[in-house]
Computed example of a mutant assay.
Amino acid sequence: MFKGMGDIGKLMKQAQEMQSKMTEAQAELDSIEVTGEAGAGLVKAVASAKGALRSLSIDPSLFKPEDREVVEDLIVAAVQDAQEKASRRAAEEMGKLTEGMALPPGMKLPF
């Protein structure tokens, strides 16, 4: 009659372990850095895998008043590139955690 209770207990333990691993992974994502580039490397943006912008580097050759709009566009492009890379890296790292789990198709963690 209570045969399923052991399975529930095992499932709860797995859920707690997963939550602990998720917390660790989230902390690790903050320490992983990715670099986005634009303008053949003239503008570089470094972000954490969580997407937080850490630094921005602009080649001095771009500092001409008449090129201001171009530089601004390159900055935006570099930041977007870094954020996209950060998002992909975060998905990879979280995918490592859920590897081997029998999750329904399309289900993503954290919920």
Rank of each mutant, 00 (worst) to 15 (best):
Q16A: 13
E66G: 11
F111W: 06
M1F: 12
V34K: 00
P110Y: 08
L56E: 08
G41P: 02
D59F: 12
D30F: 04
K44P: 03
A102F: 09
G51L: 03
T35E: 05
Q80S: 13
Q80F: 12
S48K: 03
L42G: 05
E37W: 07
K96M: 02
P104G: 11
I75H: 01
A90I: 15
L42K: 03
A82P: 01
F63V: 08
K21C: 05
G6L: 11
V76I: 14
D73C: 04
L53S: 08
E24C: 01
E37T: 15
M94C: 06
T23C: 04
I8F: 10
M18K: 13
R89A: 11
V34P: 00
L109F: 15
I32N: 14
E28I: 08
L97P: 07
F111E: 02
P105W: 14
S55P: 00
A90E: 06
L74T: 04
E17S: 11
A52I: 02
A78N: 02
P65I: 15
E66H: 06
A86C: 02
P60V: 05
S87V: 01
T35F: 08
K96E: 00
E72I: 10
K64V: 05
D7F: 12
V34N: 00
L109C: 04
A78S: 07
G41I: 11
L103V: 09
A25P: 04
V43M: 00
V79D: 02
A91N: 10
V34E: 00
I75K: 02
E17H: 09
S57V: 10
S57A: 02
R54G: 03
E37K: 12
I32M: 07
K13D: 05
T35S: 12
R54K: 12
E92I: 13
D67E: 13
L62V: 07
S31D: 05
E24W: 06
E93H: 09
S55T: 12
E28N: 06
A40K: 09
R54L: 09
